[in-house]
Write a protein that binds this DNA or RNA. Structure first.
Lengths: 172, 172
DNA sequence: ACTACTGATGACAGCGACTGACATGGAGTG
DNA sequence: CACTCCATGTCAGTCGCTGTCATCAGTAGT
């Protein structure tokens, strides 16, 4: 992050990153599969928080409510990390390959969430659709939260956006 | 596509692709920004079909219905191209970077659709949410359609999935 | 017809991301 | 004290991608 913020992502080589960590470039690639992945270390933690939150939700709740509980749990992880999140987001949005990787991570969250819903007995089709819609809402909420420092905490924004989503997608 | 199907994406070099086209590798990179992009030539056409479909929808329809019309229009483009779509999808799903690029293209469709909705007077927030949800449904529909040769045409699958989405996201 | 000018291409050199192979060294184990 | 791991370093090589310069149409202008 220091290097990326100071010199920009593209102008930072993997050799630079490794040197800053006091390691060789080869060793960097033993810890991360590629240059992008250093910025996406925490996403696995988010996934497990959401999945656990889904598993812990009340048994009789409808799928999207269950997912909402999971997403709130995941959102809680970012409490107080607003500044870091903003810096990281600035780096990511500055570079196409990084934006793609971020989308891929969100797609992984969709898959994990859908699987967690299926685990609870939700049928595959609605599980996938709920996961897609819910994670999309999470992404939108995250963008808003990052764009408004000093605003409401992320879990609240997630709730707000989910409510908006329900209104927009309401059956005719 | 011939090279990718025959030897696999990773084992095909950009020099191979250029040679098959009777050009130099350098010239390949004058036509496409990177190796992945050869497989995503048609996505721009899909975008414009959807955007035009949105613009042409009845004036008083709610946002998600408008988007549905656009997505149906876009889906029509793939009529009769099931075999090609399957081959292409097989290549894309076989490779991480290609899946990422596909997600990026879908994200571009979200942005374009949301902008087209805003153009019609929809407020930004609901436009973005409708676009996210609608395109997610389109993606799910596309997956289903590709997985079931001989099944219903894509526009119908899109309608089906959108209806399912409405049910799943229905306000409590 | 002669002369620009333009636009697509080729040729070449070079950088940086990534990988395979082998060597080294230090921590633990018998 | 050997022996075995496991993390790391080193080195060479491939491939995606870019900058630069030359070539060579075709086209326009005079």
């Amino acid at each position: 992050m220091e290097l990326f913020v100071e010199h920009g992502y593209e102008r930072t080589t993997t050799a630079d990153i490794a040197a800053r960590a006091g390691l060789s470039e080869r060793t960097y690639f033993r810890h991360f599969p590629d240059k992008r992945e250093v910025l996406f270390d925490a996403t696995h933690a988010l996934d497990t928080l959401v999945v656990d939150g889904i598993a812990a939700a009340p048994a009789d709740a409808p799928p999207l409510d269950v997912l909402a509980a999971g997403l709130r749990a995941g959102a809680g992880m970012l409490d107080g990390l607003g500044d870091h999140a903003r810096a990281r987001t600035a780096v990511i949005t500055s570079q196409g390959e990084l934006r793609e990787r971020e989308l891929a991570k969100m797609s992984g969250l969709v898959t994990a969430s859908a699987a967690a819903l299926v685990e609870r007995g939700v049928a595959e089709a609605p599980a996938l659709l709920a996961a897609e819609a819910g994670v999309a809402a999470f992404r939108v909420a995250f963008e808003r939260w990052v764009a408004t420092p000093g605003g409401p905490p992320l879990p609240d924004v997630v709730d707000t956006v989910l409510a908006e989503l329900r209104r927009v997608v309401a059956p005719a």
